[in-house]
Design a protein around this nucleic acid. Structure first.
Lengths: 170, 170
DNA sequence: CCTCATTCTGACGTTCACGTAAGATTGAGT
DNA sequence: ACTCAATCTTACGTGAACGTCAGAATGAGG
């Protein structure tokens, strides 16, 4: 009734690297294909280099994770996509490092530089997150206090006017 | 160079209730007059009933607080102004209660209803905030772990290729 | 090989949350 | 009473973040 699609499981096509199509990815992360293309368009997501014009995009699980991170940061930090781009320099660096590792391309100097760069970005993110967390905690506290006050008022009221028995108007 | 205004302190005009003008309020909460008018326009802020068309708006400290709450919720929860309107029903109810108190207008039934309504709204806000806080905490944890991993990699690297003594750079 | 859902690339439309400009009006200070 | 910055209303403009539509192309399944 609500599932007209045959619900394909894993349309893996090339090798064992689990290739997903844009629609699948969209559903996995809870967004739309358009948004994914848009993020690629503005440089938030890297454009698959393996892809000639007109060809369909293919994603790996790793890229799904990345996209999830992006959405999470966007949601929780409430920053613009432009700011996100700068924040995501961290993942960039880490991805490069991973790619290096996979290909055995290990230039120690460059690798160290990248790692340090990533570390810096991660620390900036952490500070941002902690700042937000602190503000949120304060807000939570304020709300708790408000709730307590309102509750007390209610208790005072009910204890004041409850003494009379249940009279019923008709 | 950047302060052509005489920096008036408190342009209190009517009575002792500290009347502020829209520009003052804007500076106090860190926004612009336009934004304040806009919020009023969409019903986020109540329009001063004491004000005939064309007259300047005047605000009390209480309204400044309210506006600050609004900005805070907007910032920290990242919700739309439309959602905020529904969330702010709490402050609405509480304001009405306060107004009742000031005028000695104490209809116990109505008062209790309002308080209970406010309580409900506050609890909804609290849940929202707590949800956010939890997500943020998770994010912070993830980031911390990432940082730890990157740091370890760096330590491994430097311990591998540091054996050579310290060359100094100027 | 054929089919048909899915994806592709523009390009224009839309909603939100204000910014900005214009011309008239207000009101705090002298 | 006069001045002049600040505020008023109205209306159009803007940037961000997508939505939507059209027409062509792709590619997974039978």
């Amino acid at each position: 009734m609500s599932n007209p699609t045959p619900a394909k499981d894993a349309p893996r096509s090339r090798n064992g690297e689990a290739n997903l199509r844009i629609g699948d990815v969209a559903k996995l992360v809870g967004t739309t294909p358009r948004t994914i293309r848009y993020y690629e368009e503005i440089g938030l997501l890297p454009e698959s280099p393996e892809r000639a014009a007109g060809r369909h995009r293919l994603y790996s699980e790793a890229e799904v994770e990345r996209l999830m991170d992006v959405m999470r940061l966007k949601q929780l930090l409430g920053v613009s996509l432009e700011e996100l781009k700068t924040l995501l320099a961290a993942e960039e660096a880490r991805n490069v490092v991973k790619a290096q590792l996979k290909r055995g391309d290990v230039d120690p100097g460059r690798r160290q530089a990248l790692l340090e760069e990533a570390l810096g970005h991660i620390e900036r993110q952490l500070e941002l997150v902690r700042g937000r967390a602190a503000e949120l905690a304060k807000l939570e506290q304020d709300l708790s206090e408000s709730r307590t006050r309102v509750r007390r008022k209610l208790r005072e009221m009910t204890s004041e006017l409850e003494p009379e028995p249940v009279g019923q108007a008709s």
